Computed example of a mutant assay.
Amino acid sequence: MPDQRSSSSPSSPRKRPWLWGSLMAAVASLVAGCKSPSAPRAPAPSPAQQGQASGRPAPSDAATPRAYRQDGARHLYALNAQRIYKGQLPPVLYAVGTLEIDIDRQGRVQRLHWLRAPRHAPEVIAEIERTARAAAPYPVPARLGKVTYIDTWLWDKSGKFQLDTLTEGQL
């Protein structure tokens, strides 16, 4: 009588090639998973980062003062990252001031003019003016030649701030 466990047995490897294929695929995936990951590639620097690496901000391509305001605000945030209020501002702010800034063809501050100064907080006025001047040179207004732009400074009692252009809102 022939042995029933011969090649005709349902558990025979010859009768279940899918089982061997699945087993080999599982082993291959385990081996691949054991490889050390390659170091992540650093993203290419943006034009703004390239400009900052050279010590000068990248030129602004803004065609209007309102569009330039975005570039000016991002520039101020980049230079004052530790002073930016993270998240939504509290419902009551210590000071709010609206400042007009004249930027020349080289990105230098030519003039600061308060449209709405927080007169109850003269130390905030002085600090905003110091911060705005210290941020020069600003992105060169390449398409505009020179520019006058306006932004509102939202000042928390902690001394941190947001600009209205990039604000995260208020609670």
Rank of each mutant, 00 (worst) to 15 (best):
M1Q: 14
M1T: 15
P2A: 09
D3N: 10
Q4E: 12
S7Q: 13
S7P: 12
S9G: 11
P10H: 09
S11F: 13
S11R: 13
P13Y: 05
R14M: 11
K15P: 05
K15G: 04
P17K: 10
P17F: 11
W18R: 10
W20Y: 11
W20Q: 13
W20P: 08
W20A: 10
G21R: 03
M24H: 01
A25T: 00
A25C: 02
A26N: 04
A26R: 00
V27W: 06
V27P: 05
A28M: 01
A28F: 00
C34V: 12
S36G: 10
S36C: 07
P37C: 04
A39Y: 08
P40W: 09
P40C: 02
R41H: 04
P43M: 05
Q49Y: 01
Q49D: 09
Q49N: 03
G55S: 01
R56M: 04
R56P: 00
P59C: 02
P59S: 10
D61N: 08
T64K: 11
T64P: 06
P65R: 01
P65Q: 05
A67Y: 02
Y68H: 02
R69K: 06
Q70W: 08
D71L: 02
A73V: 01
H75S: 00
H75N: 00
A78Y: 06
L79T: 00
L79Y: 01
L79Q: 07
N80L: 08
A81N: 07
R83F: 09
I84S: 06
Y85A: 08
K86Q: 15
K86V: 12
K86H: 11
Q88E: 14
L89S: 14
P90Y: 10
P91C: 03
L93H: 14
A95W: 03
V96A: 11
T98R: 12
L99P: 07
E100V: 05
I101F: 08
D104I: 02
R111E: 05
R111L: 00
L112H: 08
L112W: 09
L112V: 10
H113M: 01
L115T: 11
R116T: 13
A117V: 08
A117H: 09
R119K: 13
P122A: 05
E123S: 07
A126V: 09
E127C: 03
E127R: 09
E127D: 11
E129S: 15
E129G: 10
R130E: 14
T131D: 15
R133K: 12
R133T: 06
R133Y: 05
A134M: 13
A134K: 12
A134S: 11
A142Y: 06
L144F: 04
L144S: 03
L144P: 05
L144A: 06
G145N: 04
G145M: 02
K146H: 12
V147G: 05
V147F: 06
T148V: 07
Y149G: 04
Y149F: 09
W155A: 02
W155G: 07
K157D: 14
K157N: 10
K157Q: 13
S158P: 07
G159R: 06
G159V: 02
K160S: 07
Q162P: 02
L163D: 09
L163Y: 06
T167Q: 08
E168D: 14
G169D: 05
